[in-house]
Design a protein around this nucleic acid. Structure first.
Lengths: 202, 202
DNA sequence: TACTACATACATTCGCGTTTGTTTGCCATT
DNA sequence: AATGGCAAACAAACGCGAATGTATGTAGTA
């Protein structure tokens, strides 16, 4: 069986990405072999090298699959300029955690990002892109808090520090939850956690 | 030159640990070879295998070198039972960040822990130990907040959630700072950051 | 027919764990 | 106080597997 139709080829690509998630999660990105990924996907390394240049390219594609929808949602939240911006941000954070707790793909991919990869060698550029996303999100949140201040709210906290606090708080929850998910009941605790976190910018 | 005195052997051990820090940081733990570590330390792999069983053992020793002093300090802070416990915890957190910003060894080791290693295969047991430390610290902080409640403070927040919030906030700051240190002025911002974080348990 | 979408084969590199060899510090014995 | 033996503290060599990138083969499709 060779030379599938375009749709079949796209399906093969998705199978390889699914396999990459599983193998990265189990072995870690560095020790994961493209051979094993191919086997899990039911193909050979030839197929992997056809769809992706190398392991780093595969990694990027895997990450994009879960990041792009979230990026869209974030942009949507940030562009609303009315008074309830902080509440909208808060809702976004809560929903993000809820999604993390229920969507197993997001769970796998973010576990890989936080606990199963080393950003050196081939993944240096991937890391640069992640840092750029961080800077962008941080900047957007800082702008949000600055706008809030111009409306007379939050007069006693620096917008940048507020943004950093919220950002690092979310990072910390992601990191800690994905390290030991069984110690959390995230669907139940997420709202109260977010409430606590946002008390510092209230 | 073989068979050094005990003091010289201990110095060799320290040199190997120093080299491991440097190589782990540059290549990541998985892609770091014991050969390169030995070279940087000015010895051969024979010396490395004499002092450590394997890479994971070397990793553990490297981590212990920075963790044990901090653990002592934490225990000291937690055992004081008077009324200023939260303030003491707050001071500990601030000092922890200050130390991270100024102590280059701590910076290297925690950068490795957060961004340069995959906790799979040989590092699974190391990870278990890290999780055990987390559980212990979290438990201590929960006890602290519970004691605080029995004194009539913080009556509106769950002690466990308060502990999780502080813990994840610190984790997040560590993670984010070590990912892009140049975007922070940690010595200057640490106190204000900690102030903001602790507003949610005040 | 030309190109896509793979499979197969090849060459090379690299790192690990172990084993063996060597020299010297240290301690018991006389 | 001298000495002999043992083990510490490494160095050097061996054997092995495993993974990567590329090059080539091949069948179906448009």
């Amino acid at each position: 069986m060779v030379r599938r139709t375009k749709a079949e080829a796209e399906q093969t690509r998705e199978q390889i990405l699914d396999a990459a998630e599983a193998v990265f999660l189990e072995r870690g990105v560095a020790r994961a072999s493209l051979e094993e990924i191919a086997q899990v996907a039911g193909v050979t390394r030839g197929a992997v090298y056809w769809h992706f240049r190398n392991k780093a390219d595969l990694f990027d594609a895997m990450y994009c699959r879960v990041h792009l929808p979230m990026q869209d949602l974030f942009d949507q939240v940030m562009t609303l300029a009315d008074g309830g911006a902080v509440e909208a941000l808060k809702a976004f954070c809560a929903q993000s955690l809820q999604c993390l707790a229920t969507n197993s793909r997001r769970q796998r991919v973010y576990t890989i990002l936080f606990h199963r990869c080393e950003f050196v060698d081939g993944l240096r550029e991937s890391n640069n892109r992640l840092v750029a996303i961080r800077d962008s999100w941080l900047g957007s949140m800082e702008d949000l808090f600055r706008r809030e201040q111009s409306l007379g709210r939050l007069t006693d906290v620096c917008p940048r520090l507020a943004a950093i606090t919220i950002h690092t708080a979310m990072i910390g929850i992601y990191f800690d939850y994905l390290r030991s998910p069984h110690t959390y009941d995230l669907p139940a605790e997420a709202p109260r956690l977010i409430d606590l976190v946002f008390r510092c910018v209230d």
